[in-house]
Structures are given as C-alpha cells and as structure tokens.
Simulated scan of single mutants.
Amino acid sequence: MRLAFMGSPDFAVPALRALHAAGHEIVAVYCQPPRPAGRGHAVHPCPVHAAAEALGLPVRTPARLRKDTAEHAAFAALGLDAAVVAAYGLIIPDPMLVAPRRGCINIHASLLPRWRGAAPIQAALLAGDTETGVTIMQVDSGLDTGPMLLRGSVPITPATTTPELHDALAELGAQLVLRALDEAPEPVPQPAEGATYAAKLTREDGKLDWTQDVAVLERRVRALNPWPGTFTLLDGAPLKVLAARPEAGAGEPGTVLDEALLVACGSGALRLLRVQAPGRGAMDAAAFLRGRRIAAGTRLG
C-alpha cells in the first residue's frame, strides 16, 4: 500500500518500522523539524526522523501545515492510499485529511473516547485506571473524535510506570495499524458519552502537593517520570522524586516522619525510594541520606 507516515516521538517509531517491514511503500515521512537539545543546544532530529533516515525513507519537516497550500498540494500529489499518523504534533488540515484514498488513520494511546488529547498515557495512570489501550481511528477535524477502526487493551497494575506503559502501547499500536490497513474494518462512531480529556503536561504539574492522599501522590510519581518529573522542595531547592511507595503513617502533610524519607501526606505517608538533588545524579534514598541527613520533623514544600 502506498503510504505517508506522520509522527515524531519514540512512541511512533515501532509503527514506522512495522509498516516498512511489512512491505508497505512509504513515500514520505512527516515529522517535527530538528530542534536544539541538550547542554550544548545542538540541533537533533526527532526519533521518527532518525528512524526514517536509517530506513532510507524520505523525510519532510514542515514547521506548520494549516495555511501551507504548497504543502497541501505536495501531499495530494503523492497519490497515497492512506496516511498513518502517530503523535505527529501538528494539526492536519482538511485538504490533507481527504487527500489519501483511505484518509488519515491515527494511532491513539487510549481506549477512546476516554483520554482524548495530548497526554493519554499519563492521564490513565494519574486517574488510577486499571486498563488502557490503543485505538486506531479515522482522523477528522476534531480532537481525537473520529470514528474507530480497531481497539486493543493492556492492563495497568499498581506498579505500572509511564515508560512501561508507553512501550507496551507503542508495540500494540504497531500491530493494530497493520491489521487496520490489511482488514479495512468498518468505522464505528465513538460513543456519545464517556469522553475525557488529557491536557498537555507542564513542568508545574510535577510539584507534589503533600495535602493529597498518598495513593494520588504515588500514582503521580509513576505517571510523571521521566517527564515532566515529580519534585518537592527541600530547603527551597527542588528535590526530584523518581520512585516512591505508599506506607502507613500520619502527620502534618509534608513532614518527614523518620530518618529514611517517609513523608506525611493528607492521608497516609509516602516513602521516597529514589531521588535526585540539583547538580547530582539520581540515587537511591539510602545513598542520598549518607551524604545528607534529613531529620524527622523536616518540612518539605
């Protein structure tokens, strides 16, 4: 099948590779432009860009699409059977949505209509969902509102982290989109009820509010690492919290209850297991405390 692929982050790479391995003719890969990153601010291509070049596929990196009529025309001229979209990062305008014979098919990392939007993986963990999945859907002009083609689910356990869930859903999405192209299932409208939205995350979302229940905070640590990361303030400086577990305990929220980083929450207590101080590497709490004693009664903010 003659395809374009439109994606940018790591999540989209398994689908690109699966489509290529299956023998589909990928005539263009669209992704976000290279951007400065790292301490030296060197310009780096996004993961899909790097993967496409490794496969010998042509890459296009328009900075915007909505009013770029020349890009609309170039896309239409590709003579596509379909375009596969996976976390591309740009809104695809109507002239491009209708150009491929079978339209644009999106790999979305949730069981739609739950968790439409930018951060569905983290949202499922934050909410305490016991399962999530991937929906293959026909892209329309709305925000993840198009009709569904296929769905597949994966469980969420009390220990599931965002990196684990991300990788499982990326592989599931790759499998499902191959099926969708091969089987051409009949589109099914999304249910009118049950829609929820996963807003784009910011760094401020990572600050731990110790007045919340310990279960909420523990899920937050699992959901928001590695990005934007969770943190608390110790003597006014951010202390990243990379892993934690809920335990019994009570006290004024934010108070350290022992000398092994058990912190009182609004209900229950959170044991900090892995942390990172400014300018230092990530380390287990025990190693961190060997270099800096934090006495019971210390307040974290």
Rank of each mutant, 00 (worst) to 15 (best):
M1A: 06
M1W: 05
M1C: 05
A4N: 02
F5K: 00
F11Q: 01
V13A: 04
V13T: 12
P14Y: 12
R17P: 00
A18C: 08
H20Q: 13
A22D: 15
A22C: 07
G23C: 06
C31Q: 01
C31G: 09
P36F: 09
A37N: 13
G40Q: 14
C46W: 10
P47V: 08
V48W: 02
A52N: 07
E53V: 12
L55H: 14
V59N: 01
T61P: 05
K67C: 08
K67N: 14
H72T: 09
A77F: 11
A77R: 15
L78K: 05
D94V: 11
M96E: 12
A99M: 14
R101V: 04
R101T: 00
C104L: 10
L112Q: 05
L112P: 07
R114A: 02
G117D: 14
P120H: 01
P120I: 00
P120F: 06
I121M: 02
A124H: 08
A127D: 13
G128K: 00
T132Q: 03
T135D: 03
Q138A: 13
V139Q: 13
D144C: 01
T145Q: 14
G146I: 06
M148K: 07
P155Q: 13
P155G: 10
T157H: 13
P158D: 10
E164H: 00
H166R: 14
D167L: 12
L169I: 03
L178E: 13
A180Y: 11
L181M: 00
D182H: 13
E186M: 13
P189H: 10
Q190L: 00
Q190N: 04
T202D: 14
T202E: 15
R203H: 04
G206V: 02
L208T: 06
L208M: 04
D209Y: 05
T211P: 01
Q212L: 11
L217T: 06
L217F: 06
L217A: 02
E218M: 05
E218H: 11
R219K: 03
R220M: 15
R220Y: 06
V221I: 06
R222E: 01
N225M: 10
N225V: 09
W227C: 01
P228W: 08
T232D: 04
L234F: 02
K240Y: 11
K240F: 09
V241K: 04
A243I: 06
R245D: 15
E247G: 03
A248S: 13
G249R: 10
A250K: 14
G251W: 06
E252A: 09
D258A: 04
D258S: 06
A260H: 15
L261Q: 01
L261V: 09
L262I: 04
A264W: 12
C265G: 06
G266R: 11
G268P: 10
G268A: 08
A269N: 07
L273D: 15
R274K: 15
R274A: 06
D284M: 13
R290P: 04
R292N: 08
R293L: 10
I294M: 02
A295H: 14
